[in-house]
Every structure is written in C-alpha cells, then in structure tokens.
Amino acid sequence: MVTAEQEDFLVLEVDDLHVDVLTGIYSEETHLPQPLRISVRALLDVADHYQPDTPLSRSKNYMDLKHAATDALPRDCHFTLIEAVADHIIDTIFLQDSSVRHVRVKIVKLALSERGESIGITLGRWRR
C-alpha cells in the first residue's frame, strides 16, 4: 500500500513576481494599482520517469504559471480582496491544464511593508 508520504510528486514553482493589480478596500487603494509579490506552486501528475528526451507534454511549461499571475490578470478589474486575485490565478491554471492537481498562491502586499515584513495571504485549492 502506498501512503501519501510515499507518493511521487512534481511541483512547478514561480516565485516573487512583482505585479501591479487594482485591489484594496480603502479609498487610497481603490484608484491605483497596488504592488503585489506573487508566488505560485502547482502540483502536477508525475510521469513514471523523466528521460533526457521526455517531451514537455509530460510536465508543464512554468511560464504558464507566470502568465496566470501576470498577463492573465485583467488590468481593468478591481479585486476588493487579494484572495480574489489568488482565486483568479488558480482558476486560470486549472483551465490551462488538467494534469494540475493542486495550486497554491502566495500574495504579499508590498505597500503594507514598513520594515521588510511580508504581509499577505496564501490560498491553496485542490482540483474538484
């Protein structure tokens, strides 16, 4: 019997993307894009083994994760909560590829930092 600790896994990661997004609930936040630092992790179905000539179709292009957290975010949409930004990124990644089993998005609101703190959220979702 295989337990969760014994399962093979593949995680694609893109860290520390700086993205300006219309988000926030306070009046000073609602008219200008806010600087966010976004990191994305996607858990994928794993191949039995990866040979030197294994095609990309047996994995995923990590640039798709970057796209979901940058260009795929609507520029003219105001997200009240950064949780909604994370949900949009997750939905985009799930739509891109059915082999993605779980996505985790961490968002740090850079404008809130006074001394280098990381203030924000992490949202993870399993494919349903």
Results as ranks from 00 to 15, higher is better:
3 T>N: 15
3 T>I: 13
6 Q>K: 12
6 Q>T: 08
9 F>Y: 12
10 L>M: 08
10 L>S: 00
13 E>L: 06
14 V>S: 07
14 V>K: 13
14 V>L: 07
15 D>R: 15
16 D>N: 15
16 D>V: 08
17 L>P: 08
17 L>H: 12
18 H>L: 14
19 V>L: 06
21 V>G: 06
23 T>L: 08
24 G>Y: 07
24 G>Q: 09
25 I>C: 12
26 Y>E: 15
28 E>H: 15
33 P>K: 05
33 P>G: 11
34 Q>I: 12
34 Q>H: 13
34 Q>G: 12
34 Q>K: 07
34 Q>Y: 12
35 P>W: 10
40 V>G: 03
42 A>H: 05
43 L>C: 06
45 D>T: 01
46 V>M: 00
47 A>N: 02
48 D>H: 10
50 Y>T: 00
52 P>G: 07
54 T>W: 01
57 S>G: 02
57 S>L: 02
58 R>T: 00
61 N>A: 05
61 N>C: 07
61 N>V: 02
62 Y>L: 04
64 D>P: 02
64 D>R: 08
65 L>A: 03
66 K>D: 00
67 H>C: 11
68 A>M: 02
69 A>M: 06
72 A>M: 01
74 P>Q: 02
77 C>S: 06
78 H>A: 07
80 T>L: 04
83 E>V: 04
89 I>K: 02
92 T>L: 03
96 Q>V: 00
97 D>G: 00
97 D>H: 00
97 D>I: 00
99 S>D: 04
100 V>K: 01
101 R>M: 11
102 H>A: 12
102 H>I: 10
104 R>A: 15
109 K>I: 12
110 L>R: 09
114 E>N: 09
116 G>W: 07
118 S>Y: 02
118 S>G: 09
121 I>S: 09
123 L>V: 15
126 W>Q: 13
